[in-house]
Design a protein around this nucleic acid. Structure first.
Length: 461
RNA sequence: UCCCCGGUAGCUCAGCUGGUAGAGCGGGUGGCUGUUAACCACUAGGUCGGCGGUUCGAGUCCGUCCCGGGGAGCCA
């Protein structure tokens, strides 16, 4: 048997090939008078290859029982197709059924709702839409590495399991080997001294604090890995386990941070347009008609940069009626972010210099004493896609902020240490990969851009 | 967690003011055909999400629970 070719290679052939082999899953089969048409897909690209199974094949009776979803192996020659609609097709000389799919196979040759497909997440990668999505997901993962590697960033790995209360960014999942039906206690509290690590352990909500330590040694670094939030959030934009990209750069101030964040987002949009065109076209056609305009807009326009105080002014003078009041000192609500990026500017907006009371302790305090060097990149439809800041590098100021926020200085001893020994200005940001995929594909529910989503009360598959 | 909407055939849905259920696709059978979401004919398939209530009678009205979706908060 000849070496198996990928369908994408066959479709891109320059000339006929006498002997080829292909394997994949049947999308549909149609009978003609003396032969059968089989649409074969192996995941290597969106397009199927058409296989002609002539009735003279010795197992033609078996071939006629091939159903949608079956796995088959095909040998034959690659020929120019006499039919319209495809350039190449396989004239089969032998077809074997590797795995039959009975007619209870849930995927049909028709559009299914995303809600239904979510209930069969183990099979939905076999649809055109989800196949395309997961290929784009892979390509953009690669593009993320390429962007940073091209710029001399080092890829680092920060812990998944982390000590308690050291990050303060939402609810965390506990990690324990304690017998939950017989928890050791001391003064009516759980005694973590008996737990695996001898102290309370959690799943990470961010690798940032660790990444800062590496940035203050390697210069420019980034993480790209799983992140966990135990928030009881039930929305189309939240999942409990997601992937986040977190670059961290020494000697970068806030403007440098905004520069690299903008360059990064535009690089990825450009990459998607150029390298994922076939799969992207599916989303532009069936999911969001305005998708290509949105992507071109991101790729080719400079982002608006807007201090928080000016953003508040725009919102106050907008004349728009918002459900939530706009006032200096309050965080921007989803509706406010969307107004800025979708209505007022109609392009991505970076809002920066937020009031210190609504932002994290590690953000650098500005000279006005009221704001910190936070910056959020807001994009149409998805809202906040990047959140970042210049970090507080001054030991005394950072220590005061930790105390002010009621955090424990001891928990942060190593973080503070980095400000005692050769401290330097540095900055970073985080980008939620799934939210970014929503932006790129137009998919509106975050559960549909990750293979097996984890959300409250859902741990199937 | 809060607010709103929904749950009818394998899938997508229709079913007006209460009178015991329909279509398209999919499946099966037959026909036709270098077809391509193929086409034509026939056919099978549903205790209308669960429980309780109102009524002579409930898919339809009421209560409650479960599940799904949208929005909000939290955030990425």
């Amino acid at each position: 048997m000849p070496k198996r070719s990928k369908v994408v290679e066959l479709l891109n052939a320059q000339s006929p090939i006498d002997i080829i082999a292909a394997k994949g899953w049947v999308r549909t089969r149609r009978d003609s008078k003396d032969f059968s048409f089989i649409e074969l897909n192996d995941g290597s690209c969106l397009t199927n290859i058409q296989v002609i199974a002539d009735s003279i094949l010795t197992n033609y009776d078996a071939i006629k029982t091939i159903t949608t979803g079956s796995a088959i192996s095909v040998e034959g020659k690659l020929v120019r197709s006499p039919g319209s609609g495809q350039q190449w097709e396989i004239q089969a000389t032998n077809i074997d059924v590797i795995g039959h799919a009975p007619d209870s196979y849930p995927l049909q040759k028709k559009r299914h709702s995303d809600e239904f497909l979510r209930t069969i997440a183990h099979l939905r990668p076999r649809t055109n839409k989800y196949g395309a999505l997961f290929r784009i997901r892979s390509q953009l993962s690669y593009a993320i590495h390429r962007f940073f590697q091209e710029r001399g960033f080092w890829y680092i790995h920060t812990p998944i399991v982390t000590g308690a209360d050291c990050e303060g960014a939402g609810e965390m999942f506990s990690v324990t080997t304690l017998d939950l039906s017989n928890v050791p206690k001391k003064d009516s509290h759980v005694d973590y001294a008996h737990d695996f690590f001898g102290k309370e352990a959690k799943l990470t909500v961010s690798g940032q604090l660790s990444a800062e330590m590496l940035a203050l040694a390697l210069g420019e670094v980034y993480t790209f890995g799983p992140t966990f939030r135990a928030e009881n959030s039930n929305t189309s934009r939240h999942i409990s386990e997601f992937w986040m990209v977190e670059p961290e750069m020494a000697f970068y101030e806030l403007n440098d941070d905004m520069d690299i964040a903008e360059e990064f987002v535009r690089y990825l949009a450009t990459y998607a347009i150029e390298e994922c065109s076939e799969d992207l076209a599916l989303f532009a056609r069936f999911v969001d008609k305005t998708l290509m305009n949105t992507l071109e807009n991101i790729a080719s326009n400079e982002f608006i940069r807007l201090p928080y105080t000016e953003a508040i002014g725009i919102l106050e003078n907008s004349g728009g009626s918002f459900e939530f009041d706009v006032a200096w000192g309050k965080d921007l609500q989803s509706e406010h972010e969307r107004y800025l990026t979708e209505c007022h500017f109609r392009r991505p907006v970076i809002v920066y210099d937020y009031p210190k009371d609504i932002k994290a302790f590690y953000m650098r305090l500005n000279d006005d004493g009221k704001t910190v060097t936070a910056m959020d990149v807001l994009v149409p439809r998805v809202g906040e896609i990047v959140g970042g800041s210049q970090r507080e590098e001054r030991y005394d100021v950072l220590k005061a902020r930790i105390e002010e926020m009621g955090l424990s200085e001891q928990d942060y001893w190593w973080y503070l240490d980095s400000r005692r020994f050769g401290s330097a200005p540095h900055s970073g940001f985080g980008l939620g990969f799934e939210r970014f995929l929503m932006l790129i594909t137009g998919i509106t529910n975050i559960r549909d851009v990750i293979p097996f989503p984890r959300t409250p009360k859902h741990l199937e598959f």
